[in-house]
Structure formats: structure tokens, C-alpha cells
Computed example of a mutant assay.
Amino acid sequence: MNQVNPALLSSFAPTGILRVGINLGNPLLASLDGDTGNPKGIAVDIANHIASKLQLPILFTCYPMAGATVEAVKSGEVDLVFVAIDPVRGADISYTPAYIQIEGAYMVKDSSPLQQNEDVDAPGNEIVVGKGSAYDLYLTREIKQASLLRSANSQAVVDDFMSGVGNVAAGVKQQLESDAQRYEGLRLLPGRFMVINQAIGIPKARVDFEKTNAYLSTEIEALKASGFIAEAMQRHQVQGAKVAE
């Protein structure tokens, strides 16, 4: 713990416990263990590693979607979160460098005339997206002619889409592929419409948040360089994503 002085540690975890917000809206990063009910995944592994280095007890709080996770860290309910880097969130949250990159993709029904990502932003198209997700924030900025329809969370997107909501589903490519296995007559548009950089976020409202971010950033870079992130991806069978450069 000699890398972090007591004042910084107090700012980092003011309750003496490292309180970590886990976003269950992105199953590539975290999910609940079916046997124990505890969170598991890459984000959990990183958080446990940091808590161990700081010799702090850890407390995980799980949220159903990214928006709720972000609000929790902004309000001081948790000390750090694992979410996508986004400039809107960045007004209140300081990010480390990305530790993993994930692709955002569009899904349509086989009968759809849409063939390319560039076809989606056109009058009359309705894109279903998880409310408050990185894709929602990105598409809100970028989509000019199509409409956005927001599901309760990312996991509900394909079910809503198949119930008749919208004509395009947007989300994490791997999650769309997984959800599509429960239905027939769906296809992904080739390529991706965005790359999502996942990072640790801490509240800018904290004293010395810059120093805390610098410490966490050093840890993230070390975990990438050592192979920790790549090994965690393999252990948790994460496919279609890559360790951030």
C-alpha cells in the first residue's frame, strides 16, 4: 500500500471499504454467478485485484444498466464503476485508460431492406437501444434522421425488437448474437457502428480525484501489459472483444 498515501486512500475509499458499482447491463464484463448469486467477470477480477493491492475490503453493488451505475458513482453511493467512456458522462466522471474494447452493432430481421450500417440513419427507421447505455448516448449524438426507441436495459432490446418495437436493434455485437439464438430470422449488419472503450470511472467530486485516477490508470496499464486482462477474457470466455491498446 506504499504507493498510496493515507490522504489519497481516504479520498479513494472514504468509508474504509472499496465500494464497487457493477453494471450487469453488459454481460461481457460482469454477470451473476448462478450458484452463489455473486458478481463475476472481468470487471470483478480487476476490482478484486485493486482492493487486494490497497489492502481494502471490497463491497460490490450491482445495477441493471449502465445509467444506474453511473448515477450511483456520481451520488457517492459507490467509489468506482466499470463503464464505457463517454463525453457526456465525463462531465462528472474521471476515466482511466480503456482496458477492453467492444464493438457496437446493428441487428435487423432477414426481411429488412437494410444491408449496411450506413443505411440505418434514414427517415422512418426506428432503432431500439438500451436506455442510458453507451450506445444510447452515442446514437443520441450521431443519429440525425432515424428515431431512437429506448428499452429498459440492454438485455431487453432484442425481446422488445421481436415484439414489434422498431426495425433495427442496436447493442453489443456479442450480446445481440447471443440473444438472436432464441429467435429465427435475424441477421447482423456487417461491421460495427462504434467501438466502445470500457474503463474505470471515479467521481470528479472527490478530493484528489486526479491523483486517484493516476493511480488507477497505472494499475490498468500494468494489468494490460502483464496479460492479466487477456487471461481474464479467456477465463470468462469473452469473445469478439480485445484488450485495449
Rank of each mutant, 00 (worst) to 15 (best):
S133T: 15
G21N: 05
Q155W: 10
M65A: 13
K131H: 12
Y63I: 05
Y95R: 02
L24I: 10
R150T: 13
T140Y: 05
F161W: 11
Q145V: 02
Y215D: 02
K74Q: 14
G37T: 11
Q234M: 15
I200R: 09
L18I: 09
L137S: 12
M107K: 10
S178M: 15
E126A: 06
M65D: 15
V158A: 03
D92P: 04
D136K: 08
I42M: 15
D208Y: 15
E231F: 01
R89N: 10
S11K: 00
S147K: 13
I143C: 10
D119S: 05
R192W: 07
D208A: 15
E118M: 03
G227S: 04
G132M: 12
F60W: 14
Y63C: 05
M1Y: 05
Q174T: 12
R19G: 03
N167W: 06
D33M: 04
F209D: 11
L28R: 13
E221A: 10
A205D: 00
A66M: 15
I93L: 06
R206F: 09
I196D: 14
S147I: 07
N167L: 03
C62N: 13
V81N: 01
S151Q: 08
L18K: 09
A47P: 10
K144P: 12
E118P: 00
E177P: 02
T15G: 03
M162Q: 09
L54P: 04
N38L: 15
L28Y: 06
S52T: 10
N26M: 14
N213Y: 02
V70G: 09
Y63M: 07
L148E: 11
L148K: 07
L189D: 01
E71P: 02
E184V: 00
E103D: 04
G16L: 05
L9I: 09
A222V: 05
A152W: 08
V207C: 00
L223Q: 11
L186N: 04
V207T: 02
S226G: 03
S133R: 08
R150C: 14
P113C: 06
R182Q: 11
L223S: 02
N48L: 15
Q101G: 07
D92E: 14
G191M: 06
